[in-house]
Each structure stands twice: as C-alpha cells, then as structure tokens.
C-alpha cells in the first residue's frame, strides 16, 4: 500500500471524476491537513459514490481508505453496500477483516461491520474464537465484549451459552479484578434474556454465591466482585441480610487475637480474608450498613449510620455521598 500510485495518476481510474471535499472557494475552519494519499483516495471515493459504482475496485479503494482512517463510517457503509451488490464472498471478507479488527480494535466500525457479515453468514462459532484472540490482547475492550454478547444473544444456542461459562471462568482466573469479565459472567448467567429470576434453582444460586465469596477472600478490596455479589442478590431478590456472616468478616477490623492457627475455625461457606488483606473494606462496610438498613429498627439504623460515619473518614473522597446515605438511612425511619 505504501508504494501505491495516486488514483489521479492511475490510468485504471481515469474514468472516475474525483470530487473534492469542499466546493471551490470554501474557507473551512479547523481544516484537517490531509496527506496527499488520503486526500486523493477520498476524492476518488466521493467520485465513485456520486457515480453509484459498485465493483471490485471499489472494494480495493474502500479497504485502502479504511486502513488510512478506520473510523470513516461512510466508507464502511458503502463497502457493505458494494459487498451485497456484487455478491462478494462474505466469508472471505470476514477473514480479510480479522487483521483490521486486531489493528483497530477500539474502532466502532470494525466490530459493527463484522456483525453485519455474521448476520448474513449465520456462523457464530469461529467468530467467538476470533473474539477470544482479541480479548487475549485487550481483556477489557468494550466493543469486543459487547459484540461477543450480541453473538450469544442473537444466536441463542445452548452449547454456546454453556461453553461461555467456562470461558468467563478462565478470564476471571487470569485477573479477578477484570470488571468486564464479571459483567460478562452476569450477562451469561443472569441477564441473558432466557431465564426469569423465579426459575433460578437454589442450588445454582448457592454455587454462584460461593464462587463470588471465594474470589472476594483472595482480594477483598475488589469492587468488581462485590458489585457482582450485590447484583446477583438483587437480581434474585435475596435480602442482603442472608449474607451477614460473610460480610462481617470483611467489614470489621482484623481481630488481632485470633491470628493463632489453632483458634481458627474453618468455615468453608464463609472464607476468611487472607493474611495480607487490608481490613476493613469500605465496600463491605457499606454492604453491612445496608444489611442493617433492611431491618429498619431504630437500633439497626443507628448501626448503619455509624458505619456511614466511619466511611466519611476511611473513604474520604466519597464523604459527601456517605453523608447523603446517612440522611437516606434516617429517612427510612420516617417512611
């Protein structure tokens, strides 16, 4: 591509009338100082659009432009129109796009173009494998996760959903602070649009709660895991108070007397924070305060307020928020 002759000097394009971006005499503000190569290619792109040409060479031109500017949505749109019009091999197009998606993974259009192709091809399996290679490079790429979820929801195949649980497990094992992976877990297990929360089996819920507790015990100050924990309980209408024994372990100062191994009672249901965990966790204190709020007695509200007060000091950046939560807690008594 770097050796490419300008379209203006290429006899194969001499039948196309190039169209400049601005009409003659225009004095635009904030003009982009384009490279010669880019200006030339866009002039010829406007030319083929004006002429309505849809051909193999239009695919070449649009690919050239996409490499120079992957965010040029009009080029993508016209490329897609052209692919359909000349009945191009969409499987080949998809493979051609693999490299572009890898290089420009933060561009909306590379993912949306794939989605259009997959909608035509109805072949999700290899696509999930491809997405995995991108997430191996950038495990939090927003577009890539959204696209993966679209594929799962769109094809809605039992085998894909099941394999996905294993995949998300691997991702969390790699980095249990990866919120994109926790979000994906929630998507796969709870918000895939297939299950109503009433149909959730107790055993399934119990296993899931255990999974998140085990993860929290490894690195307790991890908002991603706690948010998932809270999300699952709210989604399944479980009161927070059902989690009191576990949450208390993380919401309170470490009891220095109980460090001797002989005294430790092993409770597998409620794993304790590891020796290097920094306690108390602000996010666990908030959780505990909400457990107290659920009970709504004046004594419990006082306990919640006392925790919020501690949070104004421990989690100082959110002082204003904890004051607001205090006011909200007080309101519970008058409701």
């Amino acid at each position: 591509m770097s050796e490419q002759v300008l379209y203006a000097q290429n006899s194969a394009w001499s039948d196309v009338i190039p169209i400049p971006q601005f009409d003659e005499g225009a004095k635009p503000v904030a003009p982009i100082l384009y490279s010669e190569e880019y200006r030339d290619a866009t002039d010829y792109f406007r030319g083929v659009v004006r002429a309505g040409e849809k051909s193999q060479r239009v695919l070449d031109l649009t690919e050239h432009l996409i490499r120079l500017n992957p965010g040029h949505y009009s080029v993508w749109q016209y490329r897609y129109d052209t692919l359909l019009a000349i009945k191009a091999d969409l499987r080949e197009e998809l493979r051609r796009m693999d490299e572009l998606a890898t290089t420009h993974m933060k561009t909306y259009q590379v993912w949306h173009h794939r989605q259009l192709l997959i909608e035509q091809l109805h072949e999700p399996d290899s696509e999930l494998d491809f997405i995995k290679t991108i997430l191996d490079i950038d495990s939090k790429n927003y577009h890539t996760w959204g696209y993966r979820q679209w594929i799962l929801a769109h094809f809605n195949r039992e085998d894909l959903w099941i394999a996905e649980i294993r995949y998300v497990e691997q991702m969390l094992k790699k980095d249990l602070r990866n919120n994109s992976a926790w979000n994906h877990r929630f998507f796969v297990l709870w918000s895939n649009g297939r299950r109503e929360s009433g149909e959730i089996q107790d055993e399934f819920l119990r296993t899931e709660i255990q999974f998140v507790k085990d993860n929290i015990s490894l690195a307790p100050n991890n908002d991603a895991a706690w948010n998932y924990y809270r999300g699952v309980l709210q989604h399944t209408n479980q009161p927070f108070s059902t989690q009191l024994n576990f949450v208390k372990l993380y919401a309170e100062e470490r009891d220095s007397d109980s460090d001797t191994d002989s005294e430790v009672v092993l409770d597998l249901d409620n794993p304790s924070p590891g020796p290097r965990a920094v306690l108390p966790c602000a996010i666990a204190m908030e959780f505990l305060a909400e457990i107290y709020e659920e009970k709504r007695t004046p004594e419990d509200i006082d306990k919640a307020i006392s925790l919020y007060h501690k949070l104004t000091i421990l989690d100082k950046i959110r002082k204003s928020y904890w004051e607001w939560r205090t006011a909200e807690a007080k309101r519970l008594l008058t409701e």
């Binding site: 982009i32 100082l33 490279s35 880019y38 866009t42 500017n69 965010g71 040029h72 949505y73 009009s74």
Partner: peptide
C-alpha cells in the same frame, strides 16, 4: 481552529 489540524487528525475526518 484557524491554522488547522495536522494530518494525524485524518482519523477524525468523519468527526469534523
């Protein structure tokens, strides 16, 4: 605004 954006801004050609 007045002098223009250098050619690296070409990737925002569709965001003028």
């Amino acid at each position: 605004l007045l002098e223009g954006l250098n050619k690296r801004y070409a990737v925002q050609d569709a965001s003028q």
